[in-house]
Amino acid sequence: MPVARLRNRYNSSRRMDTFGSRSLSRPVFEAMRATVWVHPEDSLMRAANLLRDGHPSVLPVVEGGTLVGVVTDRSLAEAIALGREPLDEVRLAMRPHLEVRPYALGAEALRLLVETGEPALLVVDDAGNLLGVVAPSDLVADHRPEPNPPLVGGMATPFGVYLTAGSARAGAPGWALATTGALLFLLYVASALFASWLHDVAGGPLWLRQTVAAVGPTALFLIGLRALPLSRIHGAEHKVVHAIERGEHLVPAVVARMPRVHPRCGTNIAVGATLFLGIATSRAIPDESLRLIVAAVVTLLFWRRIGEVFQRFVTTREPNRRQLEAAIRAGSELLEAYRWSTIGRPGLWLRLRNSGMFHVMAGSLAAYAVVAVTLWLLGWPLGL
């Protein structure tokens, strides 16, 4: 049957909407893969080599252009267990084959695989010609030819997720990234002012007030960051980045299962820098050279582990449905932009420009300027 007629039959038979149902409503010829075969007089060793190197674990046996059976891992093992030698002929391990027509639906092929327990089926046309093989994994795989970016970067903004693959970007616009920088700066200023107020009004011993002054701004900043919706959007960003990098389908049911912690998150970098500077500037180790060595070793050993803890409990939270769907839309836009991009391997400048860092820095500087001018107009000391 011509391929065009097969496709017409396939298109007229589609009735299902979910991805899993669609994958089984395709005709087998769209899911099958090419295969090699052996002759009955070939050695068991050759069949074993082909089975080891190929997948699925079924090998057609062809004699005089006619399909006469198959060799599987199980039939090969049974032949060896009966005392056959590796150089004996394949016909000694041959067994009857199961076949399916190319225009049969995937659901029919899957039912036959489940009922028989066979690892794969041979796809044979009406004239008895071997076309290929099909296994359960072939019926579930989506056979997408489009490439996915191997690495994806991103940022959370108050207005959604921003994503980049180096040569392409999608999601939240540049001004949204700038608002992230401004928001983080203003949050830290508010945390510092509140910590200063606590220091002034708090009683107790001197060490307690000094501790409040030293760690109060950072602690309040982290608490505020955790409480903001930005942490949920950050979690959605990580989930969709994981899904893209793993080649998963960008649907809520799949993306929601992805981890919130990502090894390349900026939280890890911030934790590493803080850890190194905290030890390097500490007076607990008098010798400066030794202090730098200890700072470097401790940072290299623990920056990512501590960063993952901060991601899990501070900088990300589980996104709600709306935030997750917005992140998925950004991910779909990125894939579309990436696949249509004519840029090969992006240069360093393009990657930096698309990273979003410049926008965030610009937003922070703009917020600093606004705060500085406001304090100057009010006649208050800058103190930032």
Rank of each mutant, 00 (worst) to 15 (best):
P145W: 00
G235N: 04
T374Q: 06
D42E: 14
V100S: 02
L82K: 15
L87K: 13
V71K: 01
L177H: 14
A236D: 03
G166S: 09
R15Q: 08
S282V: 05
G331A: 01
G20I: 12
V134A: 00
D17N: 09
L250D: 09
W197S: 01
T281A: 12
I279F: 06
E245S: 01
M357K: 04
T274E: 01
R304D: 12
H143E: 02
L122V: 00
S289V: 12
H199W: 11
M45R: 15
R33Q: 07
A182D: 02
L51M: 05
A227Q: 12
L67P: 07
W37C: 05
S282R: 07
M45W: 15
A168R: 12
W303K: 09
R14W: 03
I293E: 05
V298F: 06
D42N: 15
R329P: 02
A326G: 11
Y10R: 05
I306W: 02
A362D: 11
T374D: 06
E108H: 01
V212H: 01
R15A: 13
P263H: 04
G266A: 06
L206S: 04
V215H: 10
D287K: 03
A372T: 13
L112Q: 10
V71F: 01
V314H: 08
R101Q: 10
N148V: 11
S43C: 13
A337H: 10
L113I: 00
T274A: 14
G154T: 06
G235W: 11
D200Q: 13
T281E: 12
A214N: 07
S75C: 09
S75M: 03
V134K: 00
W340Q: 15
V124I: 11
L382F: 15
G160T: 10
G106M: 05
V3L: 15
A366N: 02
E237N: 04
P259V: 06
T299M: 12
S23M: 15
V189G: 00
L277Q: 12
E146H: 01
T267I: 08
S231V: 05
A176S: 13
P158S: 05
I293S: 04
A81I: 06
